[in-house]
């Protein structure tokens, strides 16, 4: 099968990626719910192709204060997973998981930051194992890294990597919140063009 450009994505392929995103992020959100002892509501996965000029605003405003846990995905895919929590939600996660009473991000210590990284890691494991189950793609991940800063600054990192050769970025996005409305976040899988082809091909075989 020849290489397709994701700009030419069909409605059918969008549905396939959406379904994959729904199942994989459903699995990740179940893990997150267990970790923090909350029930999470998840949006239907969205497949987005955005121009670079718009990329700093995909998590709301470019200046929104967020915690971003980023993981590189290797193996059969070249992808990134970004778990983005509003700064307030990151504080909530730390307090829930460690029984702490942190009120400002500046108070985070090394342990708090590594708990957030580990949260990113566990979610990525759940997301990718679901993806592996129905695509058969073998996937490996980097150690997660965290940055708590402006959304635009955090997004510049994947943007530079994934919009390097194109003037757009392809990603599958799921938004989530807990049922008590204290936790707000977005989970994003970013794919390069080769990875888009591989995912579509392997989903095609499966369906």
């Amino acid at each position: 099968m020849g290489e397709k450009y994701y700009q030419d994505i069909t409605e059918e392929e969008i549905d396939m990626l959406k379904e994959a995103g729904n199942i994989a992020s459903g699995n990740a959100m179940t893990s997150l719910g267990k970790l923090i002892g909350c029930t999470l509501d998840m949006s239907v996965a969205n497949v987005r192709i955005e121009k670079i000029q718009e990329l700093t605003d995909i998590l709301g405003d470019a200046e929104s204060f967020i915690a971003g846990m980023l993981i590189n995905v290797y193996g059969d895919l070249n992808a990134m997973l970004l778990l983005a929590l509003e700064a307030e939600s990151a504080i909530k996660v730390v307090n829930l998981m460690l029984g702490k009473d942190v009120s400002h991000v500046e108070e985070f210590d090394e342990i708090d930051l590594s708990v957030l990284c580990e949260t990113g890691n566990i979610l990525a494991g759940s997301y990718l194992s679901a993806l592996n189950t129905f695509t058969g793609l073998e996937l490996d991940v980097s150690i997660p890294q965290i940055s708590i800063d402006m959304a635009g600054a955090i997004l510049s990192y994947p943007a530079i990597e994934f919009a390097r050769n194109d003037n757009t970025m392809l990603f599958i996005e799921t938004m989530f919140k807990d049922t008590n409305q204290v936790l707000n976040g977005t989970y994003i899988l970013i794919l390069d063009n080769d990875s888009y082809n591989k995912v579509i091909d392997s989903l095609g075989k499966w369906l």
């Binding site: 670079i52 000029q53 718009e54 700093t56 600054a153 510049s156 990192y157 943007a159």
Partner: peptide, 20 residues
Amino acid sequence: GMADLNVVKAPDILTTLGLG
């Protein structure tokens, strides 16, 4: 925006948000 540029005359202000 990212990967964008613009030019203006006074008194206009140019801004770019969230440079990483």
